[in-house]
Computed example of a mutant assay.
Amino acid sequence: MSSSETTAAGAGTDTSRAGTVRLDHVTHRYGRGGETFTAVGPVDLTVPAGEFLALVGASGCGKSTLLRLIAGFERPTHGSVLVSGAAPRPGETAGVVFQTPRLFPWRTVRGNIDLALRYAGVDRARRPERRAELLARVGLEGTEERRVWEISGGQQQRVAIARALAAENPLLLLDEPFAALDALTRERLQEDLRRVTERTGRTAVFVTHSADEAVFLGSRIVVLTRSPGTVALDLPITLPRGGVDSEELRGSREFAELRAQVSHAVKAAAAA
Rank of each mutant, 00 (worst) to 15 (best):
F37N: 13
S4E: 15
I161C: 06
F98L: 09
R147G: 09
L235M: 14
V21S: 10
E5G: 12
L134F: 04
T108Q: 04
V196W: 03
S210C: 06
L224R: 07
E187T: 13
V97W: 09
G50P: 01
I113H: 08
V83Y: 14
T6M: 13
A39N: 02
T100A: 14
A132I: 08
V96F: 01
A120E: 06
K63A: 12
Y119E: 15
L233R: 08
L45A: 10
G33L: 12
I221R: 03
A39F: 01
L23G: 00
R68Q: 14
G243P: 05
L258W: 07
T100Y: 14
T77V: 09
L45N: 09
L174I: 12
V26C: 03
A232E: 11
H209P: 04
S227M: 11
L134V: 04
R102Q: 15
F73P: 03
T100D: 12
T36I: 13
S263Y: 09
P177L: 04
E248W: 03
A160H: 00
P177K: 00
D175H: 00
Q157E: 02
H28N: 06
V266W: 02
P48G: 13
L69F: 10
E74G: 10
D175S: 02
V56M: 03
H264W: 10
G111H: 09
N169F: 12
V83M: 12
A214I: 10
R186S: 08
L82C: 11
V21P: 13
A265D: 03
L140R: 01
G62M: 08
E74M: 07
M1P: 13
R147K: 09
S84D: 09
A166E: 02
R220N: 05
R199F: 07
G85K: 04
I221C: 01
D245H: 02
G251V: 05
H78T: 15
A11M: 14
A71C: 07
L135Y: 09
